[in-house]
Protein backbone atom coordinates (compact mmCIF):
# COMPACT_ATOMS: atom_id res chain seq x y z
CA UNK A 1 0.00 0.00 0.00
CA UNK A 2 1.15 3.53 -0.67
CA UNK A 3 0.64 6.48 1.67
CA UNK A 4 -1.77 9.34 1.06
CA UNK A 5 1.02 11.70 -0.02
CA UNK A 6 2.44 9.11 -2.37
CA UNK A 7 -1.01 8.57 -3.82
CA UNK A 8 -1.45 12.31 -4.45
CA UNK A 9 1.99 12.52 -6.03
CA UNK A 10 1.17 9.52 -8.17
CA UNK A 11 -2.13 11.02 -9.32
CA UNK A 12 -0.15 14.09 -10.40
CA UNK A 13 2.25 11.98 -12.46
CA UNK A 14 -0.62 10.10 -14.06
CA UNK A 15 -2.45 13.31 -14.98
CA UNK A 16 0.69 14.74 -16.53
CA UNK A 17 1.14 11.53 -18.52
CA UNK A 18 -2.46 11.83 -19.66
CA UNK A 19 -1.59 15.27 -21.02
CA UNK A 20 1.21 13.62 -22.98
CA UNK A 21 4.20 14.51 -20.78
CA UNK A 22 6.49 11.54 -21.13
CA UNK A 23 8.91 12.61 -18.38
CA UNK A 24 6.17 12.10 -15.81
CA UNK A 25 6.07 8.42 -16.72
CA UNK A 26 9.61 7.66 -15.47
CA UNK A 27 8.74 7.84 -11.74
CA UNK A 28 5.72 5.61 -12.34
CA UNK A 29 7.95 3.07 -14.07
CA UNK A 30 10.39 3.21 -11.17
CA UNK A 31 7.62 2.67 -8.66
CA UNK A 32 5.87 -0.24 -10.39
CA UNK A 33 8.65 -1.93 -12.27
CA UNK A 34 9.23 -4.76 -9.80
CA UNK A 35 5.50 -5.43 -9.47
CA UNK A 36 5.22 -5.78 -13.24
CA UNK A 37 8.33 -7.95 -13.39
CA UNK A 38 6.74 -10.19 -10.81
CA UNK A 39 3.43 -10.63 -12.55
CA UNK A 40 5.06 -11.20 -15.95
CA UNK A 41 7.60 -13.66 -14.62
CA UNK A 42 5.00 -15.74 -12.78
CA UNK A 43 3.01 -16.19 -15.97
CA UNK A 44 5.68 -16.34 -18.67
CA UNK A 45 8.46 -17.99 -16.65
CA UNK A 46 11.24 -17.19 -19.14
CA UNK A 47 13.99 -15.22 -17.52
CA UNK A 48 15.47 -14.16 -20.83
CA UNK A 49 12.18 -12.80 -22.15
CA UNK A 50 10.82 -11.06 -19.08
CA UNK A 51 12.63 -7.73 -19.42
CA UNK A 52 11.55 -7.23 -23.03
CA UNK A 53 7.98 -8.07 -22.20
CA UNK A 54 7.96 -5.67 -19.26
CA UNK A 55 9.24 -2.88 -21.50
CA UNK A 56 6.46 -3.55 -23.97
CA UNK A 57 3.93 -3.57 -21.14
CA UNK A 58 5.02 -0.11 -20.00
CA UNK A 59 4.93 1.25 -23.53
CA UNK A 60 1.40 -0.10 -23.93
CA UNK A 61 0.46 1.37 -20.57
CA UNK A 62 1.70 4.84 -21.56
CA UNK A 63 -0.10 4.65 -24.88
CA UNK A 64 -3.33 3.72 -23.09
CA UNK A 65 -2.91 5.94 -20.05
CA UNK A 66 -5.79 8.22 -21.01
CA UNK A 67 -8.11 5.26 -20.45
CA UNK A 68 -7.07 5.04 -16.79
CA UNK A 69 -9.94 6.53 -14.80
CA UNK A 70 -8.64 6.23 -11.22
CA UNK A 71 -11.38 3.69 -10.38
CA UNK A 72 -9.03 0.83 -9.61
CA UNK A 73 -5.52 1.26 -8.24
CA UNK A 74 -2.84 2.06 -10.79
CA UNK A 75 -1.14 -1.23 -9.96
CA UNK A 76 -4.30 -3.20 -10.70
CA UNK A 77 -4.70 -1.35 -13.99
CA UNK A 78 -1.05 -2.02 -14.89
CA UNK A 79 -1.37 -5.69 -13.95
CA UNK A 80 -4.34 -6.00 -16.27
CA UNK A 81 -2.29 -4.61 -19.15
CA UNK A 82 0.62 -6.85 -18.22
CA UNK A 83 -1.52 -9.98 -18.07
CA UNK A 84 -3.25 -9.24 -21.35
CA UNK A 85 0.14 -8.77 -22.89
CA UNK A 86 1.42 -12.05 -21.40
CA UNK A 87 -1.66 -13.80 -22.69
CA UNK A 88 -1.00 -12.50 -26.22
CA UNK A 89 2.65 -13.44 -25.90
CA UNK A 90 1.86 -17.00 -24.81
CA UNK A 91 -0.58 -17.44 -27.65
CA UNK A 92 2.00 -16.21 -30.14
CA UNK A 93 4.64 -18.52 -28.73
CA UNK A 94 2.25 -21.44 -28.87
CA UNK A 95 1.21 -20.63 -32.41
CA UNK A 96 4.82 -20.65 -33.54
CA UNK A 97 5.33 -24.03 -31.83
CA UNK A 98 8.14 -22.83 -29.66
CA UNK A 99 6.51 -24.38 -26.62
CA UNK A 100 8.95 -26.99 -25.61
CA UNK A 101 7.95 -30.22 -24.08
CA UNK A 102 10.58 -31.91 -22.11
CA UNK A 103 10.67 -35.28 -20.49
CA UNK A 104 11.26 -35.55 -16.81
CA UNK A 105 14.45 -37.25 -15.73
CA UNK A 106 14.24 -40.80 -14.36
CA UNK A 107 15.30 -39.60 -10.97
CA UNK A 108 12.82 -36.75 -10.95
CA UNK A 109 10.11 -39.23 -11.87
CA UNK A 110 11.04 -41.58 -9.03
CA UNK A 111 11.12 -38.72 -6.54
CA UNK A 112 7.76 -37.60 -7.76
CA UNK A 113 6.21 -41.02 -7.37
CA UNK A 114 7.61 -41.28 -3.88
CA UNK A 115 6.13 -37.87 -3.13
CA UNK A 116 2.77 -38.85 -4.59
CA UNK A 117 2.62 -41.95 -2.44
CA UNK A 118 3.50 -40.22 0.78
CA UNK A 119 0.38 -38.67 2.25
CA UNK A 120 1.94 -35.46 3.52
CA UNK A 121 4.10 -33.64 1.00
CA UNK A 122 4.91 -31.05 3.64
CA UNK A 123 8.28 -32.41 4.62
CA UNK A 124 9.86 -32.91 1.21
CA UNK A 125 13.57 -33.41 0.76
CA UNK A 126 15.59 -31.38 -1.71
CA UNK A 127 15.18 -33.87 -4.58
CA UNK A 128 11.48 -34.16 -4.07
CA UNK A 129 11.12 -30.41 -3.99
CA UNK A 130 13.04 -30.15 -7.24
CA UNK A 131 10.79 -32.83 -8.72
CA UNK A 132 7.53 -31.11 -7.78
CA UNK A 133 8.89 -27.76 -9.00
CA UNK A 134 9.75 -29.35 -12.34
CA UNK A 135 6.34 -30.94 -12.50
CA UNK A 136 4.56 -27.66 -11.78
CA UNK A 137 6.55 -25.78 -14.43
CA UNK A 138 5.86 -28.52 -16.95
CA UNK A 139 2.14 -28.58 -16.41
CA UNK A 140 1.95 -24.79 -16.50
CA UNK A 141 3.93 -24.72 -19.71
CA UNK A 142 1.54 -27.22 -21.24
CA UNK A 143 -1.60 -25.42 -20.05
CA UNK A 144 -3.62 -23.15 -22.35
CA UNK A 145 -2.56 -19.48 -21.96
CA UNK A 146 -5.77 -18.43 -20.23
CA UNK A 147 -5.41 -21.22 -17.66
CA UNK A 148 -1.83 -20.25 -17.12
CA UNK A 149 -2.72 -16.67 -16.29
CA UNK A 150 -5.41 -17.77 -13.81
CA UNK A 151 -3.29 -20.46 -12.16
CA UNK A 152 -0.32 -18.16 -11.79
CA UNK A 153 -2.46 -15.53 -10.09
CA UNK A 154 -4.30 -17.95 -7.84
CA UNK A 155 -1.92 -20.78 -7.05
CA UNK A 156 1.44 -19.04 -7.21
CA UNK A 157 0.70 -15.44 -6.30
CA UNK A 158 -2.10 -16.42 -3.94
CA UNK A 159 -4.64 -13.80 -5.03
CA UNK A 160 -8.26 -14.27 -4.05
CA UNK A 161 -10.97 -14.89 -6.62
CA UNK A 162 -12.24 -11.34 -6.02
CA UNK A 163 -8.81 -9.81 -6.57
CA UNK A 164 -8.36 -11.78 -9.77
CA UNK A 165 -11.78 -10.59 -10.90
CA UNK A 166 -10.72 -6.99 -10.34
CA UNK A 167 -7.40 -7.42 -12.15
CA UNK A 168 -8.87 -9.22 -15.14
CA UNK A 169 -12.08 -7.22 -15.13
CA UNK A 170 -14.23 -10.32 -14.69
CA UNK A 171 -17.03 -11.22 -12.29
CA UNK A 172 -15.80 -13.33 -9.36
CA UNK A 173 -18.29 -16.03 -10.33
CA UNK A 174 -16.75 -16.18 -13.82
CA UNK A 175 -13.27 -16.40 -12.32
CA UNK A 176 -14.45 -19.25 -10.08
CA UNK A 177 -15.86 -21.28 -12.95
CA UNK A 178 -12.81 -20.78 -15.15
CA UNK A 179 -10.47 -21.55 -12.32
CA UNK A 180 -12.30 -24.78 -11.60
CA UNK A 181 -11.96 -25.89 -15.22
CA UNK A 182 -8.32 -24.85 -15.31
CA UNK A 183 -7.61 -26.90 -12.19
CA UNK A 184 -9.35 -29.94 -13.64
CA UNK A 185 -7.27 -29.77 -16.81
CA UNK A 186 -4.18 -29.24 -14.70
CA UNK A 187 -4.88 -32.31 -12.60
CA UNK A 188 -5.22 -34.46 -15.68
CA UNK A 189 -1.76 -33.32 -16.75
CA UNK A 190 -0.32 -33.87 -13.28
CA UNK A 191 -1.78 -37.37 -13.03
CA UNK A 192 -0.44 -38.44 -16.38
CA UNK A 193 3.03 -37.05 -15.75
CA UNK A 194 3.41 -38.11 -12.15
CA UNK A 195 1.79 -41.51 -12.78
CA UNK A 196 -0.57 -41.05 -9.92
CA UNK A 197 -2.42 -44.35 -9.94
CA UNK A 198 -6.09 -44.53 -9.21
CA UNK A 199 -7.30 -47.78 -7.77
CA UNK A 200 -5.90 -47.45 -4.29
CA UNK A 201 -7.96 -45.27 -2.04
CA UNK A 202 -5.77 -43.02 0.07
CA UNK A 203 -6.52 -44.94 3.24
CA UNK A 204 -6.07 -48.44 1.84
CA UNK A 205 -2.96 -50.34 2.87
CA UNK A 206 -0.45 -50.79 0.08
CA UNK A 207 0.67 -54.32 -0.84
Amino acid sequence: MISKEEAAQEAGWIERCQRGEQEAFAPLVERYRSAVFRVVYRVVRRRDEVEDIVQEVFIKAFTAIRSYNFQSSFQTWLSRIALNHCYDYLRRVRASHVTYFWQMSEEGQRNLEATAESREPGGLNAEQRAAVRELASQVLEAAPPADRVLLALKEIEGHSVEEIGEILDLKPSTVKVRLHRARKRLLKEVSSRARVRPGEPAGAPRP
Binding site: F37, Y41, R42, P121, V132, A136, L187, S191, E200, A202
Partner: peptide, 29 residues
Protein backbone atom coordinates in the same frame (compact mmCIF):
# COMPACT_ATOMS: atom_id res chain seq x y z
CA UNK B 1 -13.43 -43.27 -3.98
CA UNK B 2 -10.20 -44.31 -5.74
CA UNK B 3 -10.59 -41.77 -8.54
CA UNK B 4 -10.91 -38.88 -6.12
CA UNK B 5 -8.08 -40.21 -3.99
CA UNK B 6 -5.81 -40.17 -7.04
CA UNK B 7 -6.98 -36.65 -7.82
CA UNK B 8 -6.27 -35.55 -4.31
CA UNK B 9 -2.74 -36.92 -4.53
CA UNK B 10 -2.21 -35.17 -7.84
CA UNK B 11 -3.52 -31.96 -6.37
CA UNK B 12 -1.17 -32.16 -3.41
CA UNK B 13 1.74 -32.66 -5.79
CA UNK B 14 0.70 -29.68 -7.87
CA UNK B 15 0.27 -27.56 -4.76
CA UNK B 16 3.69 -28.50 -3.49
CA UNK B 17 5.06 -27.57 -6.91
CA UNK B 18 3.29 -24.20 -6.89
CA UNK B 19 4.69 -23.48 -3.46
CA UNK B 20 8.16 -24.10 -4.86
CA UNK B 21 7.51 -21.83 -7.83
CA UNK B 22 6.21 -19.10 -5.53
CA UNK B 23 9.49 -19.16 -3.61
CA UNK B 24 11.54 -18.70 -6.77
CA UNK B 25 13.19 -15.27 -6.94
CA UNK B 26 11.73 -12.95 -9.55
CA UNK B 27 14.29 -11.49 -11.98
CA UNK B 28 15.04 -7.80 -11.55
CA UNK B 29 15.35 -5.04 -14.10
Amino acid sequence: CPACAARARAWRLAQAGFRELASEPVPEA
